[in-house]
């Protein structure tokens, strides 16, 4: 939670967004600088901490000569992102059989960062308790969910907060939030106060 005026909130929000954009283009160092600046204004800002944790886990050496690669796949992903279908864009790139190019990698990072931000907005501060939507259990088998979603579903007991679900799942934080968001969008789970 932020203390202080709206201008501080705006400043933090701008720093976070600028950091994401830099991260998406591969400028991880500058992205970290901007997120750190956000933390100085708002110590403990969960969004900044999430981005830094996720980026830290995923940062890998960049370099090598630029490849011709699969520019059409990256273009397709950009088009999907522009039509606000970041999920589909990420699926397209992560399932692409071609070798990873710098451009492709950068696009994946940008998509993850954007989706991360979306999930954070959707799920809030993760303090709310997750529940199975009434009637969802009856046709669960007809859905096409991965085992990780099944695992998360098995832990939903009407008492455990979203943040605790993510912690005990042992899953990559992005993947856990993504799974929860997908199940929410599919009408399988909801959340509310304890």
């Amino acid at each position: 939670m932020l203390d202080g005026s709206n201008s501080k909130e705006k400043k933090v929000s701008t720093l976070l967004q600028q950091g994401l954009e830099l991260y998406g283009t591969g400028d991880v160092a500058r992205a970290f600088l901007l997120w750190s600046e956000a933390l100085e204004i708002d110590p403990g800002n969960e969004e900044a901490l999430d981005y830094m944790r996720d980026a830290d886990r995923r940062t890998k050496p960049r370099g090598g000569s630029p490849e011709a690669g699969t520019p059409s796949i990256v273009d397709d992903a950009r088009r999907l992102l522009r039509s606000e279908n970041g999920e589909a864009a990420l699926e397209l790139l992560t399932n692409a059989p071609a070798e990873a190019t710098l451009e492709c990698e950068a696009m994946i990072e940008l998509l993850r960062a954007n989706l991360f931000q979306r999930y954070r907005l959707e799920l809030g501060d993760l303090s709310q308790v997750a529940r199975l939507v009434d009637g969802a259990a009856s046709d669960l088998h007809s859905r096409n969910l991965p085992p990780s979603a099944g695992f998360l579903l098995s832990m939903i007991d009407g008492m455990t907060a979203l943040g605790d679900l993510v912690s005990v799942s042992g899953m990559d934080r992005f993947e856990a939030l993504r799974s929860l968001s997908r199940m929410h969008q599919a009408g399988i789970i909801s959340w509310g106060d304890a």
């Binding site: 669960l140 969910l145 085992p147 979603a149 099944g150 695992f151 579903l153 098995s154």
Partner: peptide
């Protein structure tokens, strides 16, 4: 009944 949907894929 032990019911574990999506246990694997």
């Amino acid at each position: 009944e032990i019911n574990l949907p999506f246990i694997a894929s």
